[in-house]
Amino acid sequence: MGESGDGPGPVEPLADLKARLRNLRARRCLPMITLSRRAGPGRTTVSQALNGTGVPTDATVAALAAALGGDPEELLRLRDRAVTVASTSPPCTAGPTSP
């Protein structure tokens, strides 16, 4: 069971962080450009924080939390867990793939 008891396994902290940020954005019906203007980081940074594969910076998470009315401490804790998981994951050993 997942951490919440309703899924097949634990939710990855990075996936959880990004999902929470996307949900906050959706609840406020904010277009990406508006969120970017309110939060401060550029559109690409905001898009990567919500949808990309990398862990957003503390500053980006805090700015998005403030702009979206989310709990910055909770989101920053998730970010810290995501960093810990990312730093302890084994490196990718797969070689390049051809099209």
Rank of each mutant, 00 (worst) to 15 (best):
L76T: 03
L76S: 04
P31L: 03
P13D: 04
L24E: 08
D80R: 11
T44Y: 00
P72W: 06
A49H: 01
T93Q: 14
A15S: 13
A65H: 06
D58Q: 04
R20Y: 07
D16S: 13
A66S: 10
M1K: 10
A63L: 08
A65M: 02
T45N: 04
T97S: 15
V61R: 03
N51I: 07
T57N: 01
P72Q: 10
L75M: 10
Q48L: 08
S36P: 04
L50C: 07
L17F: 09
T97Q: 14
V61W: 07
V55H: 02
T45L: 02
T44A: 13
V55R: 06
L68Y: 01
L68N: 04
L64M: 00
A26S: 09
C92F: 02
G70S: 12
V83N: 07
S4C: 08
D58A: 07
C92Y: 08
L30N: 05
P56N: 12
T88S: 15
N23I: 02
N23Y: 09
L30V: 00
V61N: 06
S89A: 15
M32L: 15
S4T: 01
D80F: 06
R37T: 04
A26T: 09
R38A: 13
A15H: 11
Q48F: 05
S89M: 14
P13C: 11
A62E: 00
S36Y: 00
R27G: 14
D80P: 02
V83P: 01
I33K: 05
D16M: 11
R20F: 03
P13S: 10
T84E: 14
G40A: 04
A15D: 14
V55E: 08
T93K: 11
A62Y: 00
R22F: 02
S98Q: 12
N23M: 00
G70A: 15
A59Y: 05
G54Y: 06
L35R: 00
A59T: 01
V83L: 15
D16T: 06
E74T: 02
M1Q: 13
S36F: 03
P10V: 10
R28A: 10
A49I: 03
L75H: 01
A49F: 09
A63K: 06
P96R: 12
T57V: 02
S4P: 03
L21R: 01
R77N: 10
T93M: 13
L64D: 01
A15F: 06
A66K: 14
Q48I: 06
